[in-house]
Amino acid sequence: MASETNEGKLQACCLVEYRPLPGTPSGELVKIGGVDTYHISGKDQTSKGKVIVLFTDVFGLTKNPRITADEIAEKSGFDVYVPDLFNGEPLPSSLLSLMPDEAGKKLSFGNKLAMGGKMLTTAGPWLIRHRQAVTLPIVETFLKTLRSEKGATRIQAVGYCFGGLYAVLAGSEQYHLADAVVGCHASLATKANYEQVNVPIAMACAQEDEHFSDAFRSEVEQIFARKPQIPSKFIVTEGTAHGFASRPNPDNPVVMKAYTQANDLIAEWAKTHL
């Protein structure tokens, strides 16, 4: 029930977006494995049990991930879940004002100084509080509860930026919590993490992304080229920077086209591999 969740806290702080996507979320907030979770039902009644889970970036379960979940549910026909991994305490999306939102833009000297200060005072301590040793058990409990209590039989884990690591881990041989994986401008995951993936994986990449560089993408592509039994797909979206698939600028048609490409990839990958 929504009354048992942190909806009040989420409404008060987390629904504030630096660049909100248009529309109104149409799903509901539920509790799964002790985690506040946005849920939107898909319309394909023949595919119940096949679900898509979105692991957000550091800005958490705000309006944009809910709008994205609604669009992916519409495109795929599957139920979509977005767990709040941060207990209603994400980083503020106002930090996006310091970051480039499209390819070709560079941080000004002033923004570099401001970003350095924010990393020391805000982002750095936050990342320590939400390190892998803290977040991974939440992800593991959530996905296992989704199967045991919500009837999920096949799960596609989708990770955006920070959440990319947890989608990759969910699809790994070690944890095997997901049956397919999509990463959208994923960060934090290492080559060793990708080596462990043993389920179909797709990656929606930005044209310019210091968190998932061209060189690193080539190394990851080579990993899966050596494992042809595992379906893989990589797309690079034109004109984009890190964050395009989760926090796009709705006034930029090039970036919004890439946002749609990412959602199409997520939906098609799920329909193909779940």
Rank of each mutant, 00 (worst) to 15 (best):
Q261Y: 04
E149V: 11
L54D: 01
M115W: 12
R154F: 03
N193I: 00
E4K: 14
M119A: 13
I72E: 00
N252L: 02
L85I: 12
G104C: 08
A206S: 15
A270K: 10
D209R: 03
H130S: 08
L21T: 10
G60D: 02
Q229C: 02
G49S: 11
S97L: 05
P100N: 08
A170I: 01
E195A: 04
S232R: 09
I155H: 05
G77Q: 08
A225I: 00
P248S: 01
G27D: 01
A225G: 11
M119L: 13
A103F: 00
A167I: 00
C161K: 05
H130F: 12
K257N: 10
H39G: 06
L177M: 10
T237S: 15
F86E: 00
V16I: 09
S218C: 07
F224C: 03
E71R: 15
F59S: 06
E219C: 08
P92L: 06
T122Y: 02
M119G: 05
G49A: 12
P90Q: 13
E28D: 13
A157D: 03
G164C: 05
K112I: 11
H185N: 07
A258H: 07
P25T: 10
A206L: 04
L107Y: 00
K233T: 09
G77M: 06
Y160N: 11
G23F: 07
Y18N: 13
S246F: 09
P250E: 01
F162Y: 15
L188M: 14
V80C: 10
Y166M: 03
S94T: 13
A133K: 15
V134Y: 04
T153V: 12
E268A: 14
M119H: 06
S218K: 15
K150E: 13
M115S: 13
A258P: 11
Q132K: 15
R131A: 12
Q222G: 08
H273Y: 14
I52R: 12
D36M: 07
R66H: 05
